[in-house]
Design a protein around this nucleic acid. Sequence first.
DNA 1: CGACAGATTGATCCGTCTCAAGCGTGGTGG
DNA 2: CCACCACGCTTGAGACGGATCAATCTGTCG
Lengths: 220, 220
Amino acid sequence: MAQLDSCTFDNIPSWLTRYRSGQTVFAEGETANRIFRVESGCIRLQVNGSDGVRQIISFVFSGEFFGCSADDQSFSAEAVSATILRCWSTRSMLSCGARSVDVAIALINFANAQVSEMAHHLEKVSHLTATARVRWFLSNMRNREDLCKHSGRLDLPMTRRDIADYLSLSAETLSRTIQELEGEGFLQRAGRRGVWLRGQTPQPGIKEAQQCSPASPDDN
Amino acid sequence: MAQLDSCTFDNIPSWLTRYRSGQTVFAEGETANRIFRVESGCIRLQVNGSDGVRQIISFVFSGEFFGCSADDQSFSAEAVSATILRCWSTRSMLSCGARSVDVAIALINFANAQVSEMAHHLEKVSHLTATARVRWFLSNMRNREDLCKHSGRLDLPMTRRDIADYLSLSAETLSRTIQELEGEGFLQRAGRRGVWLRGQTPQPGIKEAQQCSPASPDDN
DNA sequence: CGACAGATTGATCCGTCTCAAGCGTGGTGG
DNA sequence: CCACCACGCTTGAGACGGATCAATCTGTCG
């Protein structure tokens, strides 16, 4: 999800709301009247298939925006964990965008980043094996420093089922894949939501200090 | 892809360009400096995976817009068939959007429609069987009256390979699925790109005639 | 401490992919 | 205008990855 320049919106009135784990922020089809930024916690955006199967489109983390629409919401939003959101009125945001180039461009950029993310999500989910999907997901997650309380240790806010629905895998396959990656030394499970990442997948850009791990002998 | 209110942009200078089948309009990563509307023909938006596999994100038809971005393009665009495009400068479009509420809202709506389409594309591709995906695709296509020169007869501009890459199927599976649907009486192939649709899928959410049953009375 | 939802593990099945040939259409050149 | 060619499409056989069904285990929370 897009990083909007927060300063751009500082002059527009906003307020805070609080959600419990699992609570719905808005549902698909609902009229969009607010834009949100995650202050703390995590939100999942999802569409529900006709057969009740759920596809998670995106996880939204601290500092990121969602819900920007001038029409109806095209997906629903639910809290993955206890979450605090900052809200703006869509109306005031748009009318401000009509007066300020910065705001208008920020909104366009935001929407475009969303499209970009989804396009690549679709590409990954369609063409990668289960193992590659999980590696891709974890590599994305490790770049969010707010999830890494300790170096290399990921504390994921979402359940296995959430991850499975994000990657279009069954929960069983996801579990087996994680087990397999643990056998390879790529990761180590720590409780139900925690993961120690060992394999230093060279991410584009940042590479942070690893602890005592030897350079991964296995291939990527 | 979104329908923008064309009138909104009538006051912004534009020009026409022509593309041959297969020609690239822009590539992923390229700086976005134009917004396009299809005057005639068809455009495909796609991302290319690292392994060379191609995922088609969307087909863009006559009257629809694409390429709206204030940053770099997050996918590439190629002509499916001979195509004429109307182009606007992104700069002039955005600065106009900063002065006109209509234009700003139109741009937001456009981006949002794109997100909505992709979210549901992802959901369909992830959870439907090959047969259901093809039915879904054809049902979408049949609603484009510009493709139906005769009632019920679809003249698709794209190849099987294109459709397969859109639905995340192999070309072989797509072919077999079409054959199967022909056996059920859902469609009938007419040349390489043409399809007669028999099954009257009444669009929104209605269950259509059963498939595996004894020869649906072949009405046309 | 106890209970329950979520996670894991196992066995089996099915759908789709892959590799490999033929076939037909539509376009090209004579 | 016709014959030919090439590419895209079709069809077949086999393999495999992930889904499904079912049972058990384990963290987390009351």
